[in-house]
Amino acid sequence: MKVLVIAAHPDDEVLGMGGTIKKYTKNKHQVKIVIMATGIFARRSQNYKNSTTYAFDKKTTKTMEDKLADLRRDSKKSAKIMGVNDIEFMDFPDNEMDTVSNLEVTKKIESVIEHFQPTIVFTHSQYDVNVDHRVLYNATITATRPTSSCSIEKVISFEVPSSTEWYFPSQFSPNMFVNIDKELETKIKALMAYKNEIRDFPHPRSTEAISVIAKRWGTVSGFPAAEAFCLVRQINNDVL
């Protein structure tokens, strides 16, 4: 089976479904990760922390470009921990994907789908405070529309802690759960590969919070630890 993970920023793929990715690769399925936006420039700073400044000078831009290269090295390291060697980076503007036409984003995703021919596509939830996440959901739904030549059987959305849960008053409402009890340790290790993205507890993007969130979904689904998803669309050739 071919599994395509479409994520907005580096570390979204781990936060959303790192355990499930590891489960797929352990079972010899082919996983491809696509990171659509740079994931760093919106901070407008040189130290990986958010700044209230919008514009920055050429010197800062050069420093940020070096940090982006470092971040992508972390992404590749994290992917390998999860058993993934196929990771592709796009260059859409970080936290400004709403400035790009839905058509352009959709066409990029369609191109990836055409070459990879996935069976399952994962992407962000539409119920998310991050504009890039919402843009990707909408573009993915368009790019995966059912046609006679389409290989995609399922489209599934995931949450991203520190973003999805802050979208008030609507909320991510999962209807699928994956047991990641044996993969939780790997998920945390993969997240730690993003050395500049980890935060201290109780921030949702801390290793402690990731464990708590997995155990919370476990209490919902009857597993020691779980990741939660929403099945957006399923196309069956056979009866259910």
Rank of each mutant, 00 (worst) to 15 (best):
L4T: 08
I6F: 08
A8C: 09
D11P: 03
L15A: 09
G16S: 06
G16Q: 02
M17K: 12
G18E: 02
N27K: 15
N27V: 07
H29M: 15
V31Y: 04
K32C: 01
V34E: 04
A37F: 01
I40E: 05
N47G: 06
Y48E: 09
S51V: 11
K58T: 13
K58Q: 13
K59H: 07
T60W: 00
T61K: 13
T61F: 09
E65Q: 08
K67W: 01
K67M: 14
D70A: 13
R73K: 14
S75F: 01
S78M: 03
S78F: 00
K80H: 08
I81S: 04
I81E: 05
M82K: 04
G83L: 09
N85K: 12
I87L: 12
E88M: 08
P93C: 06
P93Q: 09
E96A: 15
M97Q: 07
M97C: 11
M97A: 08
D98N: 15
L103T: 12
E110Q: 10
S111Q: 14
V112K: 00
V112I: 15
I113G: 04
F116R: 14
I120H: 03
I120F: 07
I120G: 02
T123P: 06
S125T: 15
D128P: 10
D128Q: 12
V131M: 04
V131P: 03
V135L: 04
Y137N: 15
N138L: 10
P146L: 13
S148N: 08
E153Q: 13
E159W: 00
E159Y: 04
V160Q: 00
P161I: 07
S162I: 08
S163G: 09
S163Q: 10
E165M: 10
Y167C: 07
F168C: 08
P169C: 03
Q171W: 02
Q171K: 14
Q171T: 11
S173V: 05
N175L: 08
N175F: 05
V178G: 01
N179Q: 06
N179A: 01
T186A: 12
T186P: 01
K187V: 07
K187A: 00
K187F: 04
I188D: 01
K189R: 12
A190Q: 02
L191G: 01
Y194T: 10
N196V: 10
D200H: 05
F201G: 03
H203G: 10
E208T: 13
E208V: 10
I210C: 12
S211F: 01
R216C: 04
W217K: 14
G218F: 02
G218L: 06
T219K: 12
T219P: 02
V220H: 13
S221F: 00
G222Y: 02
F223N: 11
F223Y: 15
F223S: 06
F223C: 01
E227P: 06
C230R: 15
L231S: 12
R233V: 02
